Amino acid sequence: MRIIIMAGGKGSRLWPRSLEDRPKQFLALTSEESMLQQTYRRLTRIVPPNRIYVVTAVQYRPLVLEQLPELDEERLILEPVQRDTGPCVALSALHFLRRGEDETLVLMPSDQHIPNVLALNEALCKAENIAESSDAIVTLGIVPARPETHYGYILTSGGKGHEGARKVLSFVEKPDRDTALQLVAKPDVFWNSGIMVWRPSTIARAMKEHQPGLWDALAKAGAELDRIYAQLPKISVDYAVLEKANNLYTIPFRYEWEDLGSWASLERIREEEADSNGNILHGSVHAFDSNHNIIFAEGRKTIVIGAEDLIIVSTSEGLLICHKSKESDLKAIVQRVEKQGGGVG
């Protein structure tokens, strides 16, 4: 199989650390390496490096090559502009189909924390076996660890098929707390990991059936790719294809997994670093009479007194002070400030 790392997102929910010109996948948030570098190194333990590709927006090409100097241009797929994962997946499939290649592709986000590489390899191999032997679309479904409201959920059938796969019945996108509690109580419900395994020809068939306008425009773009791509709809592959497909399966993944899409997810990954009062501190931070905060200070001494359950992030680009209960509003507020000309990101 070939593995494509999707590294084109903006990461607005980690503002002001993650900015449009250097988003989260290029930042060292959980170790000395960036999320992109960690993902690439992890995957070299599964497949040879020459079978690992990166798809990203053209504006991030210099960052990718700076952080992955071993990645040659042949393995870099460039989107003219950011149009979400639907067009990104279609462009990736066309990249191989035009070369007459139809080997199974794993499409994987660049910003996930998956420490158990052996378990990941086993799950991907099972998914590959299914995708190779049929026109199936296979995802990795994460066994829920909590009633999470920031993730999408996959509802599956009870029976186990080839390689232990479950038939996907439906999706639930970012439920409220009560719904999430009901979902995690069911044995056949999983978090949607965003990891997809399918052949380029399977992607083409799915796009032709469910997004014919998008696929036809992209397939016929030729020298007009930049102009055509900018006109494609901003649509996720979930909405574009997966939620409409009847040949969709999921492989349960029961090991540690985290989508590093928010300050709360960073706190979970780094919980062992918390001080005696449950604070996650980064930089020159001094916290007094403060409990269960996430405090990130870049480039200046920071003192926090009497704070509880806050996210405090100070960088040269801005200052964020947010109660943890309001973190789900951050992305929308950042977008609102951007539209108002506030210079966020």
Rank of each mutant, 00 (worst) to 15 (best):
S110Q: 03
R177K: 13
L232I: 04
L65K: 13
V58W: 15
P23E: 01
V313S: 06
G306T: 02
A274D: 10
E308S: 06
G9K: 12
S316A: 11
I114T: 07
E317I: 04
N129V: 09
S316M: 13
N129R: 13
G141L: 02
N121K: 12
A274W: 09
A28Y: 13
L14W: 00
I305V: 14
E209L: 04
A245H: 12
K167M: 14
E103C: 11
A136P: 00
D188N: 13
R270H: 09
I303E: 12
A145Q: 15
A136E: 05
R199M: 03
K208D: 09
F96I: 02
A219M: 09
Y255V: 03
W15L: 07
K160A: 08
H95E: 13
L266E: 04
T139F: 05
Q182R: 14
L232V: 05
V184F: 07
I280C: 11
R199D: 01
I312E: 03
K208G: 01
V55Q: 00
L260G: 00
S133E: 12
I130P: 12
Y255H: 03
V64S: 02
R254S: 15
I333D: 11
V54T: 00
R51C: 10
N247F: 10
R300F: 14
R22S: 11
E132I: 08
G194F: 08
V58R: 15
R146D: 11
V344C: 13
I251H: 05
M108W: 08
V81P: 03
D111L: 07
W198Y: 14
